[in-house]
């Protein structure tokens, strides 16, 4: 089934095409938009980006599979990115990650049964002075301890911050 971009996304893509000498550089933003509107980057979503920017499918596929934020498979609406890199590890980041796994009932990389929350073990998110930390869309959770995790899960279930709001 062929997919389409919303009128708003088409406008954004057209505006971005003005900012570069060719359409190719817009592929990253177009992939972000396609993922926002279609949940993940299926083959059809890649075809949509390729057709919109007049790029070969193989090129779009190559870009989509290089970067970790692009998803080829469906996942939860909201992604919790929990850092376990050095500064976070030194202050208990792995314990907080384990607590997220327990409270969400999924392993890292997994999505909750209700398809709402997706848990990712992240590399450094540039908030190391407040380690351990996590980021969800535009919101940072800083200086985390395992006993804060259930509260965060409840908060996100009630009021998600879909990362896709920012493109």
């Amino acid at each position: 089934m062929s997919l389409e971009f919303s009128a708003e996304a088409q406008k954004k893509i057209a505006a971005l095409c003005e900012r570069y000498p060719t359409k190719q550089p817009v592929v990253m933003a177009a992939l972000h938009l396609a993922q926002k509107e279609h949940g993940h980057l299926s083959d059809d979503a890649l075809r949509l980006v390729a057709a919109t920017l007049e790029l070969p499918y193989a090129h779009v596929y190559g870009v989509a599979t290089f970067y970790t934020m692009y998803r080829r498979e469906p996942a939860g609406k909201t992604t919790i990115r929990m850092c376990t890199n050095i500064s976070c590890m030194l202050r208990g980041g792995y314990d907080v990650l384990a607590e997220f796994e327990k409270r969400l009932g999924v392993k890292k990389g997994g999505t909750t049964a209700d398809k709402s929350l997706h848990l990712v073990e992240e590399e450094c998110i540039a908030a190391c002075a407040n380690a351990p930390c996590a980021v969800v869309g535009t919101k940072y959770y800083l200086d985390l301890t395992p006993d804060q995790v259930q509260g965060i899960v409840d908060e996100l279930k009630a009021n998600p911050h879909p990362e896709s709001e920012v493109v």
């Binding site: 190719q24 550089p25 817009v26 592929v27 990253m28 933003a29 992939l31 972000h32 790029l55 870009v63 290089f66 970067y67 970790t68 934020m69 692009y70 590399e123 493109v167």
Partner: peptide, 22 residues
């Protein structure tokens, strides 16, 4: 220009490739 998750794009020539849509 937004990246999409890749530490290597901090290296200046990788960054330029990424900016070019590669």
């Amino acid at each position: 220009h937004r990246g999409a998750g890749a530490y290597i794009c901090g290296e200046e020539t990788a960054l330029l490739n990424s900016l070019e849509g590669l």
